[in-house]
């Protein structure tokens, strides 16, 4: 399987062992993002990194797991309820009572995170999956309003199909 190294900038402590072991200089860049053109996927940097900041990722990911129709439909009901919760919390986040406003702000964020996680398990896990690309295509064909960012959706479809 073809692999490439990727670096988590949040974990990288700039100890620089990866710079010493990389045979191609791919890990030494001005923006700290490993140069995918130069990386041969040898994995030396990931093994040497004392901070566990480098992961080896397959260039092509496996297909997304199949999802059961019943699971999707139940999870979508939950998804709708969570985003309704988010909408209510959004309204309350500008309440005159600052304590309620703050609690509501937290609930708005919490509901979005939960909704995203449920969406992921309801079949939208991988950005480059057939389902995600299919959803984008469907929206390009039937844009909900004239303001739909069609050009961005098309650019996204092209990029995802390359992955």
């Amino acid at each position: 399987m073809e692999m490439k190294a990727v670096r988590n900038l949040r974990l990288c402590t700039k100890d620089c062992l990866c710079l010493y072991v990389c045979p191609t200089g791919a890990s030494d860049t001005e923006d700290s993002v490993i140069d995918a053109q130069k990386c041969t996927g040898c994995g030396a940097c990931a093994g040497a990194c004392p901070s566990g900041a480098i992961s080896m990722m397959p260039v092509r990911l496996p297909l997304q797991q199949e999802k059961d129709a019943e699971v999707i439909s139940r999870m979508n009901v939950l998804l709708e309820s969570l985003v309704r919760r988010e909408a209510m919390a959004d309204k309350l986040s500008s309440d005159a009572d600052p304590v309620l406003a703050k609690v509501a702000q937290a609930i708005r964020r919490s509901s979005r995170l939960s909704a995203e996680d449920i969406a992921r398990e309801a079949g939208y896990m991988l950005p480059q999956s057939a389902r995600a690309i299919g959803l984008l295509k469907e929206l390009v064909d039937n844009p909900p309003t004239k303001d739909f960012p069609k050009a961005s959706a098309l650019a996204l479809i092209r990029a995802l199909e390359e992955m």
Binding site: L63, E66, E138, N142
Partner: peptide, 26 residues
């Protein structure tokens, strides 16, 4: 690639906010 998940479900029955969450998750 199309094999994963089979037929793509139509998103029309999802609310705009649910679609917003699907896309922020992606």
């Amino acid at each position: 690639k199309a094999e994963a998940g089979g037929q793509v479900q139509t998103p029309v029955q999802l609310s705009p906010r649910a679609l917003s969450a699907i896309f922020s998750n992606l």
